[in-house]
Amino acid sequence: MNKKMLVTATLIALIVGFAVATNWYRGAEAERVETIADESTNVLVPGHAMSLGPEDAQVVLVEFFDPACETCAMFHKPVKDLLKQYPERLRLVLRYAPFHHGSEDVAKMLEAARLQGKYWEALEVMFATQRRWASHHHPQPELLWELLPAAGLELDMERMRQDFAGFQIDSIVQKDIADAATLGIRKTPGFLVNGRQLPSFGLAQLHQLVAEEMAAKYTK
């Protein structure tokens, strides 16, 4: 074997080895997350988490989202459409993974609005106005203090600021951040369906995983 062939063979071996190692790692990581989810529901679906859909649904979609994440905003409607597709069988649970600068404060604003019964309305305004306050070059999450009431949400803003600064809300956000780390969530949106991660990211992959769990749980 000449030198050129030896180099080529070595490169091929390295590429194959890397691919095998990558696939093994992904499989091992997915198995680790599913094990954690099976052993501790509190890590995946804690009591404080906001949710939509029937609580007795056998398929639970957990979404870790970042309020400033553009992809999270893009997936907002498709995820709601999934709930419409399976109105009696799918439950959506929202968790925070505030990776962007300022996002942790926005998560706290959402929780403060929640204490006044306006969580879902505030979430809609947050995503609808994301381009105004979440510029990656100059994020201004403080603008939401003006944007929320300007959108017609009847909020007691003084009370909201007090709740925003409280320990109760901070502990909720910190719990989500810790659970995201435990589950290996490194980017958003991060989806888990009955504790299973997407094999690769994409809307089609999300639909497929939900369909698989629907078949497993509801097909007699």
Rank of each mutant, 00 (worst) to 15 (best):
I177E: 14
Q174C: 06
Q140G: 02
G195T: 01
R159F: 03
P189H: 06
L155P: 02
G195R: 00
A134N: 03
E146V: 01
V193R: 00
I177H: 04
H136W: 11
P199H: 11
I172W: 03
A150Y: 04
G166V: 09
E142V: 11
D156W: 06
W145A: 09
G184Y: 03
F164L: 10
Q168M: 05
N194E: 01
A180N: 10
D156R: 11
F191D: 00
W145Q: 04
V173A: 11
V193M: 00
H137A: 05
P139S: 08
G166T: 10
K187I: 06
L155D: 10
W133Y: 02
F201S: 04
L147C: 01
R186L: 08
S135P: 01
P141Q: 03
N194T: 01
F201Y: 15
K187P: 00
M157W: 05
V173Q: 06
K175E: 11
G152M: 13
K175I: 02
G184F: 02
L147H: 01
L198K: 01
A180L: 13
Q197R: 15
D170G: 12
A180S: 14
V173I: 15
F164A: 07
L198T: 00
L148P: 11
L192D: 00
D170S: 06
P199R: 14
S200I: 07
Q174N: 13
S135L: 07
W145H: 12
I169G: 07
N194P: 04
N194L: 01
A178P: 09
I177C: 05
K187S: 14
G202Y: 01
I169S: 07
L144W: 03
F167W: 09
Q168E: 15
M160H: 05
F201K: 10
E142N: 12
L144K: 04
E142I: 09
W145T: 08
G190K: 14
